[in-house]
Design a protein around this nucleic acid. Sequence first.
DNA 1: ACTTTAAGTCAGCGTTGTTGACATTCCAAT
DNA 2: ATTGGAATGTCAACAACGCTGACTTAAAGT
Lengths: 170, 170
Amino acid sequence: MADASASQVLGGESLLYLTDEQLRQGIEAMFFAYRGFTADPDRILQGLSYGRAHHRAIHFIHCAPGTTVNNLLNILGVTKQSLNRVLRTLVEDGLVESRVGRADKRERHLYLTEAGDALEKQLSDAQRARMRSAYRQVGPEAVAGFKQVLEAMMDPEMQRQYQRLRENRG
Amino acid sequence: MADASASQVLGGESLLYLTDEQLRQGIEAMFFAYRGFTADPDRILQGLSYGRAHHRAIHFIHCAPGTTVNNLLNILGVTKQSLNRVLRTLVEDGLVESRVGRADKRERHLYLTEAGDALEKQLSDAQRARMRSAYRQVGPEAVAGFKQVLEAMMDPEMQRQYQRLRENRG
DNA sequence: ACTTTAAGTCAGCGTTGTTGACATTCCAAT
DNA sequence: ATTGGAATGTCAACAACGCTGACTTAAAGT
């Protein structure tokens, strides 16, 4: 049977939430929810000749001003060639400033310009509005569970980067 | 202040879980978790000249055998041209069978072949393994919260389709 | 029978991911 | 001081997968 792997009891505790059907529901929920998660920023970006890649770069530059290209690379999990194409357009369009490092002139430190900050605010306001609405509907306990599951789904390396970002903001 | 929108109390209940910082954490958690969520299938598909789009098509054809192209279109939220390219390669490679409708000959009904079922099993086994591990780590209450937040994040139309899929499987 | 609507296909384009090759610039170690 | 390695950037090519537009075929409405 499909649910054989979970149709057992361990120490008297029900494992019904681990059936293949429950897991499949979670998988589909992730799929549909991620579409909602990116829908609002996607709408804003379409027509600006920008996409999700630009949004992600702007988000993390905003969170860690002065970050290097290489650091951003690790966070975003893409190749430098891919990121470079995105950063080049953002710099050309005056949304991001790239300053040569003082201690190490090989590094480029990235900052949002005023225009970049304005777009970041527009994008994150829209995305936060949806998150806030969802959080409000379900309450703090559900939100805590939500974050626990997401964290457990990450690869260990991503988990470390996620926590590092949290720590850097208190 | 950044947290002005949530630094209030309503009816004596704390809204600290709605601060901009909490929402930002949720946004980043979604970003990193979705990478983990797709990592295993992506690994399996890479080199097969297939991608996520093929995975999604296979997943939903498996869940609703005999579904039409148009129905799949609505679930996946892409254009028929985009889906068609994916379906064409899957049919050519003998993973999906496309049968002309009997009542309405315009429609094509989609079914997985044995080979298609085998790949579906390989992909969903990998993805479920990660989900199961995450679920096990956090327990049933957290999982319930996780699903509540995801559902609240969906657009209403996606929410309906998500629930319809659940109902069709009991 | 003629028109309209719907389903599916084909062709072409844009974004964004990939790899590979290569230049530059700088730090560090010998 | 020269050499080796690391960080960055550029150019080129390619794959996956969104999109639009134009088209065929089949069903449905008048």
